[in-house]
Amino acid sequence: MAADPAAAAAAQVPAREPPPPLSIVSALPFWFYLTAAVSLLALLLPHLLSPHAPPPLPPLLRRHLSAGRLLKLHPGPDLFALTSLPASTPAHHPHPVLVLPGLAAGSFSFRRLLSSLSSRGLLAAAIDLPGQGLSPPPPPPPRTNPLREILDRGIFHAFEHLVETGEVPFQDEPAPGASHSFHSPAEAAAAAARAVDALGLGPVHLVIHDSALAAGAALVSANPAAVLSVTLIDATATLPAFPSAVLGVPVLGRLVLSVPALFRGLMRLCCVRGMDAQEADAHRAAMRGEGKRDAVFEAGKAMNQSFDLREWRTSSEEVKSLPMMVLWSGSWSDKWIDEGKKVIAALPGTKFVYHYGGRWPQVDACEEISKLISEFVALLTTADKSTEAHNDHPVS
């Protein structure tokens, strides 16, 4: 019987041997080049993201800097302030409006609001809290020296500390007794009070924005006679609009401040609905100065997470009787609306108004916020004059 031709042809073809397993020696070049590439990137990226010479300030920020003034305070830190005078002298002289901007916002974001308030006959001013906006960053707290720690405690102290606590010692931590921070609400409030005296503003209608709530509350508590009313603009002591924690991530923090599109996207995601490229670039430049990124990050860490709004409102008769208004974004998110309901629940008897802006309404709802503040101040001014007239002419 004849054999099948196809089977005979297949029998003549030798079987293919399986490939030999990949040896460790042959994989070494791949891992070597990968490690070298990652190491080179880690060395070059910080230099690429941090230019040796600081870039020039954008025109918008330069104009804002020239319009304001740096207050040399003693004791420090120095603070930047912007004042907008009314175009014409009003018949009645209402007390000035003072704005404390929130984290990373700065007086630059309030420049149009101040101008709008002054066009309505009000003297308006904004003060950049320590390290924020155009205020110079305070000196960093002293750090522990790892070499000095080793010489003082011995080389085996690190291992013993790691076994006992599970933490690595000899990190850059504040030295013992160096808990003093200019970013704390009490210190920021004290610096703001000195700035008010330097500006000669006298009793003010205080406007507190975003994360400046705890510092503004401390300012009111320490100087109740210097504050005539309080307006809160999307103010919270625990949920700042700008995510300062991003700046603390070594590579990501530099990247956010180095790439304009990335920074602008972050602002639109967390702070405002719309911000043009020039304004976003000015905000970015304000945080790219020497020590400013760390200052914003440290200010975020120094926020008083235990601040209780209801407890502060009832802390004294002066604070309890203080006229107060809350302006809150009614279209940012359902979660933010719920947060506003918590705020108004902690402040019974307070005027509450929803606005159409974002969490930085001084940028995207400037005229609406200006109108609400000026009407609130005018109402209080009219009430004060009625009281004075009644006291001057008592009913017999």
Rank of each mutant, 00 (worst) to 15 (best):
P224C: 10
A104M: 14
D276S: 12
L57H: 12
D308R: 13
K301F: 02
G68K: 12
L34D: 02
I233P: 00
I155R: 12
Y354N: 09
D172Q: 02
A158P: 00
E317V: 13
A42R: 15
P101F: 09
S118N: 04
L372N: 07
K72E: 14
A222L: 09
A125P: 04
A124L: 07
S229Q: 04
R69E: 14
R284Y: 02
I344Q: 13
L85G: 01
I233H: 02
R264Q: 15
E375V: 08
M275N: 06
L117M: 13
V25P: 00
L219T: 05
K342A: 10
M287P: 00
A105P: 00
G76L: 02
D152W: 12
L41C: 15
V99D: 00
T238A: 14
R273H: 13
R112S: 15
S333W: 11
A105T: 09
A104F: 07
P75Y: 07
R120K: 15
P21I: 06
A302E: 10
V163I: 13
L252W: 11
S331P: 02
A87K: 10
D334S: 15
P260R: 07
R120M: 14
G265W: 14
F159N: 03
L129S: 06
W312N: 03
R16H: 10
R63V: 12
F376K: 02
F159S: 12
L43C: 14
P394E: 08
A286D: 08
M1C: 10
K335S: 13
R268I: 08
D197Q: 11
L219N: 03
I373P: 00
V246S: 03
V246H: 00
H95C: 01
I337S: 05
G177N: 04
V220E: 01
D334R: 15
A346H: 11
L219A: 11
A222M: 07
W360Q: 05
A91F: 14
I150R: 13
G330Y: 10
D294P: 00
L28R: 13
G131M: 02
R288A: 10
K341V: 07
A383C: 02
G349L: 06
R153Q: 15
G265V: 10
A365W: 05
K72H: 15
Q171S: 02
V196A: 07
G357M: 05
E317Q: 14
D392I: 11
A6W: 03
L380G: 03
P20S: 15
C270A: 15
E375T: 11
L113C: 01
E164W: 10
A225W: 04
V343T: 15
S39F: 09
H52L: 12
P29N: 08
V230L: 11
V99I: 15
A365C: 10
E367T: 05
L129I: 09
V163R: 13
L49W: 01
G166A: 10
R148S: 09
G68Q: 08
R63F: 12
L48W: 12
L252E: 08
S109Q: 08
L79I: 06
T381V: 14
A7M: 11
R16N: 04
H355C: 09
D276W: 11
S211P: 03
V207M: 08
P141E: 01
S119E: 12
P29V: 03
Q305T: 13
V343I: 14
A285C: 12
V272Q: 04
I233Y: 01
C270F: 13
